[in-house]
């Protein structure tokens, strides 16, 4: 009897202790939380610091946040892109990140007080140097390349990298973007819904070049010991793609959320990024990047439309793309 009582008391203590472990709910894209994304190691690292339970809720970020409105279960949202930050900001759901931005090592200025960058990359055409003899070394050279150099790209209406490409062309060529698309059209083998389909077509040998990221070759170098995949670097510049984290203003775990925002810019977190997410850390100098990344050819010039500029050109740019490729 006494034993049973002790056991019951022990259970009660254990269960109240369990109930008291605070939970930080983080919304993240599906790829981020998978076994092959950066999520699990970030979770383990943060839980060791916070004495809390970090729980990911993977899935589409913007639709879910907007559907839930102020009843959202999220404390923190990680993995937002600049394409959706305007809508996310308008919703009024996000509060200031409160972090000092001086440790950032981005190739552009970043002064946003709501959305904090945690990693970045640039759009680039990736090719296999055993299959392409003379790869274009500039955007102009790409336009002038023979039509049997086949490239595969993503649709700007369904893919963030596809949209980044359209903005990339717009940033270089401005009013001439539509005629540039007409020049590119015969070289575009096809357009896919997302990045995975395109990259699959490329690795299968169906396409010569694929719209991907400057950091894609690092995966092949580090994980596969294969240095035949190369990103073509263009002097006209490459378009900047960044992933962001935001804190929900009305979170019921404000201290934990702040601690997480701080963790995002910490060295421990930033060191997980290159080989965890195959992209570049937002706050870690190049000298600290792992082998394979430190020697990666990167563009001299970075192009970027901020949220407000992108909002004014995006619709027109996508329409120019659609018109030119529909002919």
């Amino acid at each position: 009897m006494k034993k049973a009582l002790t056991f019951a008391a022990g259970m009660m203590i254990a269960s109240t202790a369990g109930a008291q472990t605070p939970v930080l709910t983080v919304y993240a894209p599906d790829y981020f939380t998978s076994e092959w994304g950066p999520g699990p190691s970030i979770e383990a690292g943060f839980e060791a610091l916070c004495g809390c339970d970090l729980q990911y809720k993977p899935g589409d970020l913007l639709p879910r946040i907007m559907l839930e409105g102020d009843k959202t279960r999220a404390d923190v949202v990680i993995g937002l892109n600049t394409d959706v930050t305007a809508k996310a900001r308008e919703s009024g759901l996000f509060g200031p990140h409160g972090q000092d931005l001086s440790p950032l090592t981005l190739p552009i200025e970043w002064a946003d007080e709501t959305f904090l960058p945690f990693n970045y990359s640039q759009t680039a055409f990736v090719y296999d140097k055993t299959r392409v003899d003379t790869a274009p070394d500039s955007f102009e050279a790409l336009l002038a390349a023979p039509d049997d150099l086949k490239i595969v790209i993503q649709d700007p209406r369904s893919s963030i990298s596809g949209l980044a490409l359209v903005l990339w062309v717009k940033a270089i060529y401005g009013d001439k973007a539509e005629s540039v698309w007409e020049q590119l059209a015969p070289k575009i083998l096809t357009v896919t819904k997302g990045w995975s389909e395109s990259y699959g077509l490329f690795t299968d040998g169906e396409a010569d070049m694929v719209l991907s990221y400057t950091t894609s070759p690092a995966y092949h170098i580090i994980a596969e010991g294969d240095d035949t995949k190369v990103a073509a670097i263009f002097p006209e510049g490459h378009y900047f793609m960044v992933e962001l984290v935001g804190k929900i203003a009305a979170t019921d775990q404000p201290e934990l959320a702040d601690q997480f925002m701080e963790y995002v810019l910490s060295e421990e977190f930033q060191r997980m990024i290159p080989t965890g997410n195959w992209s570049l850390p937002a706050a870690l100098p190049r000298s600290e990047w792992p082998e394979g990344f430190d020697t990666l050819p990167l563009p001299q010039k970075t192009l970027f439309f901020d949220e407000a500029e992108a909002a004014t050109v995006q619709k027109e740019a996508v329409e120019e793309w659609r018109r030119a490729l529909s002919r």
């Binding site: 790829y31 092959w36 994304g37 990911y56 589409d60 990045w195 994980a223």
Partner: peptide
């Protein structure tokens, strides 16, 4: 919109693997 990190289905894992190169 419903994904549960601990209860992925096989087609979802295939997409995740592709998304991770």
């Amino acid at each position: 919109l419903f994904a549960d990190p601990d209860r992925a289905t096989l087609p979802l894992q295939i997409y995740r693997l592709m998304g991770a190169y």
